[in-house]
Design a binder for these strands. Structure first.
Lengths: 304, 304
DNA sequence: CATATTTATGAATTTAATTCATTGGTTTTT
DNA sequence: AAAAACCAATGAATTAAATTCATAAATATG
């Protein structure tokens, strides 16, 4: 018999295009999903997905079920918002602290949508730099911190968002363009253009350059566009999320290169206090965040 | 986590107005449903139903979930029809043999709806009387038999529809009107007005009168309205399903009385061959049949 | 051609749902 | 007013089923 579990899986398959990624998305193993799909297929006597080389493709039947899933899951979310109103859990505050500057890109439209659904929740962005963002939660200065920190800590929950790749961004004429992959040494004589945050908050420096003993010059800019403008005009190179620069790369404004043979990856979490985690509007915020990110951001991968 | 199981239960609770009846409706025990409701309530931190003395009442939250359930379950049904088309299982024949004459009442609109959803299925009513309707299935004369037969038989499946009460129908001026409950003896000097079928197909005779050694006169009519017309004009009494006479009773055209202290009840099944049972359009027919009957027919109770 | 990655599968395990047996309330009956 | 009948709730036992584990098969990738 069909269950929501199946629909959630179908939606994840559609989102991620692979069984193993979908499995992470719904916090199950690849095996579990494979079994699930099998039982679904035998229940309806038709196939839902088809192996397409290394990944998979949805069949016609699968597409029908996916569109059902999307419809149904949205309706459930809407009803759950209604339930929060009924039980008077539809108010409170959601002050978001952003550790990842580029995240403004997807957070802004998300906040607009959130405001529509939760008019009685005080929504705010906590601006400025914070040395210890998790402390901010404990001190009550913010309700969610969006960043890459995820070390286990009492009374704090790190809700996984997604994993993304950080690419080196170069001017199209940069001599390094000939290399398909950049390594630490390639940054030795460059100027690194970053957001105005300490060194230990920049993955490239922390995980690649510092271990290799390389300390390039730095120059900072507040906004992603400003950084890209500097890169394009050959003032230096930057390291930014692949989805944050996609448009600029597609239009040949800049070029992007992988950092290290496996790439430089970063994980994004939304951290809250334990007590905040159970609030309906926070749960809703998280699911819509994940949904919109997986739907709109290219190249991201489920986490956990 | 919410599952379709919960929504199916909610819908059944709404339909039947009681946990134990809802349990039968979804083929589970009362205990299972009670646990299910409890876990649902603790998941959302609010109550869904409230004990209202003998039976139960849905809370505001419960009503929200019920309307979600109805929407979602309909969408699933629609998608399953689409899947049948995709896998080319949307054609075949559905010839219905009716053992219960009064069932025309609900079957007609149901057939109209069915035709809309399954334009490529040959839908027919097998008319006339059949001594052994199950044999009709085996001989290929019909695809479904709607009647009260349900003895286990090889290669035949009896899909339970519902249980209903058969009431004695009297003219408003009938001397028997003073009795709240009629017993076999009360029929001794009456004329029994029935459909034109053999005695052993009339529950009142088979289960009440014959065992008591009472053999009233009989007169037959083809149509329910004709029977009621005869009753109203004092030509005799009839025994008909409570839902079949509700409108006439409500308008005081006739009056209805319980037969025996526990009432005279009859069970309705839709019987098919085993192989027919798995066809998508047959399953769809059955679920819509049950849905519309439980939604529109008063006083019916889930079976099994 | 070896290696990475991805999906499929059978068996074992764990989790969760359901039933069983019983109790506590309500209503109805006598 | 007591008894009977009915209905829902509960905890423990049971059963069922979903998930994981371990592994194989299949398909790119370098």
């Amino acid at each position: 018999m069909l269950e929501l579990r199946h629909l959630r899986t179908l939606a994840a398959l559609h989102e991620t295009g692979s069984v193993s990624r979908a499995a992470k998305r719904v916090h199950l193993t690849q095996s579990a999903l494979s079994h699930q799909i099998k039982s679904l297929q035998s229940h309806y006597g038709l196939s839902v997905i088809q192996r397409r080389g290394q990944s998979i493709e949805l069949t016609d039947a699968g597409k029908h079920l996916v569109s059902l899933a999307e419809k149904v899951l949205q309706e459930i979310q809407a009803t759950e918002r209604d339930l929060a109103k009924v039980s008077q859990q539809a108010s409170g505050s959601l002050r978001i602290a952003l550790e990842c500057h580029t995240c403004f890109d997807w957070l802004m439209p998300l906040m607009d949508e959130f405001r529509l659904h939760w008019p009685d929740v005080e929504l705010d962005l906590v601006s400025g730099f914070h040395s210890d963002p998790v402390k901010l939660l404990e001190e009550g200065g913010a309700d969610v911190v969006i960043g890459s920190e995820h070390k286990r800590q009492r009374d704090i929950i790190h809700h996984p968002l997604f994993r993304f790749e950080i690419l080196a961004v170069l001017a199209p004429e940069d001599p390094l363009r000939t290399k398909r992959i950049l390594h630490a040494a390639d940054f030795a004589d460059t100027t690194l253009i970053t957001y105005p945050v300490p060194e230990d908050r920049i993955d490239l420096i922390l995980n690649v350059l510092k271990p290799a003993g390389i300390h390039p010059q730095r120059r900072t800019a507040e906004l992603t566009v400003a950084i890209l403008q500097l890169v394009a005009s050959r003032r230096g190179v930057a390291a930014l999320p692949s989805w944050g620069i996609k448009n600029y790369v597609d239009h040949d404004y800049v070029i992007a290169r992988r950092i290290g043979s496996n790439g430089l990856w970063s994980d994004l979490y939304a951290s809250t206090l334990k007590e905040t985690a159970s609030r309906p509007y926070l749960r809703d915020f998280l699911t819509t965040a994940r949904n919109t990110c997986f739907a709109t951001l290219d190249g991201i991968v489920p986490l956990e």
